[in-house]
Design a protein around this nucleic acid. Sequence first.
DNA 1: CGGAATCCGATTGGATACTG
DNA 2: CAGTATCCAATCGGATTCCG
Lengths: 126, 126
Amino acid sequence: MREIGPGELDPYQQGCPTRRILDLIGGRWTVLIVGALGSATLRFSDLLRRVDGISQKMLTQTLRALERDGLVIRTVTAEVPVKVEYRLSAAGLTLTEPLKALELWSIDHFAGIMAARRDHEIPDST
Amino acid sequence: MREIGPGELDPYQQGCPTRRILDLIGGRWTVLIVGALGSATLRFSDLLRRVDGISQKMLTQTLRALERDGLVIRTVTAEVPVKVEYRLSAAGLTLTEPLKALELWSIDHFAGIMAARRDHEIPDST
DNA sequence: CGGAATCCGATTGGATACTG
DNA sequence: CAGTATCCAATCGGATTCCG
């Protein structure tokens, strides 16, 4: 994939908004983390538990990216054991709507897709 | 990532519909291909041109996956140079709606995100 | 508690060459 | 035209260890 400069912005191809946002939420974890946060405020360890299967590395990495892009707000409270909380920003909160639509679609079409996948090729039915 | 059997379906964790669908449309190309197709019928070479930057390998691979899952229909016409056309199935067509919502969100928030990313750390302002 | 750092296997995906 | 096949570099991402 070509590198695209900061000021550059192709008409409607490589560097179009959709493409760049797709790179942002492209990871398997981003969407799940945003969904887990919703309108709640969660600690690092909470997220680690709620987003089942994520490693601490990926959680950190994804949260950092979301924070950098202004979708997640990180708050550190300097207590004895450090307390770090994450919540969606106003912008991040707006993202939950289209994602919710996608989630509903997934639930609606899950069975159909799995059926299509199963039927796609019955290895050998003589 | 653990493997999940066909009949298995965790309550709301690893194997939930959203998770599996995310794996499906997770690739950077799936969404773009579905968007390129829309309600149109396109040939392989058309798609190769419209989805800017995709390699022929990834186009084939992604189309195969979409076909397997019943979202895309592949039609072969045995002419002298073979003609292969792709279009969205009824199910595939329903996917364009939530994706469109996501696209609108991207356009709306693109500038803001890029700004946040830029401001996130001014390397050194003395 | 909330990470950072390192190691390293698995997967992704482009480039290229060949085929019916 | 519409692929298939192979090679290989880069990235992803889990496991583990260490730190303030």
